[in-house]
């Protein structure tokens, strides 16, 4: 996928989002005009309007450059790594969905599990899984980090700030 294609998809998503907001979300979930001051929907409409107009303007720029056969220079139309050796990583570049999934899935699981099995077990399991997911195969090191961090944050939250840790408590 070239950078132009990626930007086009992103702008189209922005346009879609704005259309949904203007046609459904803002009218449905904004209070009616009370009869004085500015309408509660004014600033939200302005914000969405800015997004929509900028996305359409950018799409037009891309369309003009494509239809007039005047492509943008490679450094703007392609990812920098494509220009070099076809590999590597750049911050403004491809999304590594597998890697993203490896990190995000344990986080989402922690969110769901913490209310079921409690802070201690869920946090320990999360840290073990996360360290494995990012490539740490030293089990003892992973175990020590997980136990220490779980305990340390428990002590800080419980006794330092007096905040109950999330989920059912193991020893209470």
């Amino acid at each position: 996928m070239t950078r132009i294609k990626r930007d086009t998809i992103a702008y189209l998503l922005v346009v879609g989002f704005c259309v949904v907001m203007l046609s459904w979300a803002i009218p449905t979930y904004t209070p009616a005009y009370p009869g004085y001051g500015a309408s509660p929907a004014l600033v939200t409409n302005v914000a969405v309007g800015i997004m929509l107009s900028m996305a359409i303007l950018s799409l037009l720029t891309i369309a003009i450059s494509v239809f007039t056969n005047k492509p943008l220079p490679p450094e703007e139309s392609e990812f920098p790594e494509d220009l070099k050796d076809g590999g590597g990583f750049t911050q403004v570049g491809r999304v590594n969905i597998m890697q993203l999934g490896r990190i995000m899935i344990p986080c989402v699981l922690l969110l769901l599990a913490i209310d079921l099995i409690g802070y201690a077990l869920a946090s320990f399991a999360y840290l073990m899984i996360l360290q494995y997911a990012i490539g740490n195969r030293k089990w003892l090191q992973s175990f020590v980090v997980s136990v220490t961090l779980t305990l340390l944050l428990y002590i800080i939250m419980r006794y330092g700030f007096g905040v109950p840790v999330p989920g059912p408590q193991l020893f209470e």
Binding site: A25, I26, Y29, T30, P31, P34, P40, T44
Partner: peptide, 8 residues
């Protein structure tokens, strides 16, 4: 102004 929920 209205103290009602918006976009919630």
């Amino acid at each position: 102004v209205t103290a009602l929920p918006r976009l919630t």
